[in-house]
Design a protein around this nucleic acid. Sequence first.
DNA 1: TTGCTCATGTAACAGGTTACATGATTAA
DNA 2: TTAATCATGTAACCTGTTACATGAGCAA
Lengths: 189, 189
Amino acid sequence: MSLPHALLGLINYKPATGYELKARFKQSVHFFWNAGLPQIYRSLNEMKSKGWLSLTVQHQDGRPSKKVYSLTQSGREELLRWLSEPGEISESRHQLMIKVFFGNQSGTDVLAGHIKDWRDRHLALVRMYETDVPSLLERYGALVSSRGDAFCWGLTLDYGKRHAEMVVEWCDQALKDIEGLQQGGAASK
Amino acid sequence: MSLPHALLGLINYKPATGYELKARFKQSVHFFWNAGLPQIYRSLNEMKSKGWLSLTVQHQDGRPSKKVYSLTQSGREELLRWLSEPGEISESRHQLMIKVFFGNQSGTDVLAGHIKDWRDRHLALVRMYETDVPSLLERYGALVSSRGDAFCWGLTLDYGKRHAEMVVEWCDQALKDIEGLQQGGAASK
DNA sequence: TTGCTCATGTAACAGGTTACATGATTAA
DNA sequence: TTAATCATGTAACCTGTTACATGAGCAA
């Protein structure tokens, strides 16, 4: 369980409603984690009942009321406790790698098609990391920024970029290898 | 939903029981996907009721009977259909990156500790990809192997290794940056 | 007038994990 | 005699997704 802690971290920058939190996810950590609104609302309720959050209702004219959540002392403690805890090994469920693993059953043409797709998507991601994302982080950073925050966000950004680049390189090599296999020699029993 | 398809792929090499499939997962795709026994048994039942699998019960002396599943024609078709389908973008839920993102809230010492841990684990993974895993794949490959299968398995192996190497490199850079931040300049507002 | 943004949620379902239950064989 | 391996599963629970429900304001 970890979504509640991600929410604690975001709310700790600045109190927020569930709806706003959804948007903050999109602007910040959504490359590494995302969450739907129903799940956010559900989590906020649980967190409140654990005493991690306090709630202020803001009435608005002509719009639904806002439920603005803030961290309580106990919420702040829980966040720090979790952040200090050694992380669990994250399980990646990697659909494409399964398809690659069984690639001999689908045939190398199908396989090469998937890999080309994947390469394109990750190349686009690399571009995004280079152009769109920094400005996004900057805009988001403007809300609450300290130099330390910006530094940490930069680290995750760098990770995402390296990851996407690694994938592109792997795809290139794999496509070369497949070509070699198709031309070079018989690839059956 | 994709576990059933991974199971189809494994059974297609050779008929198997639920228990054996769990072991095969461990020997083959478990870097990219894993599954518990309850889930495997549940999936096998569903797959059978969809007509993808046929079942033979093998009685054994002094041991519980085996339920050996094989692919039906319809199962083979479903597997090929799924393998040809373009893959969904896999959502990685990356706990450590969340902790990095909020690293300024926990402090750079805690953060550096996590990253060191992670570096160690991935360095161990790199070593494993270099030594243990190839022999594992070979042993597994001996069961059913064709050159094409071995080739595809090698591709996933290469991906895993590249990934682990990339993580180690990122960790090294991040640790350097953190050090620089701690020495170089004030890291507050 | 069509669709987007703001703002709340509920209900049902799908997928994955953990705990519980059984019981024989075999190697340390 | 203790623990691991073989072999089956059920029940409960946690998490995440999708579909449904409401309703005002505003821009194209």
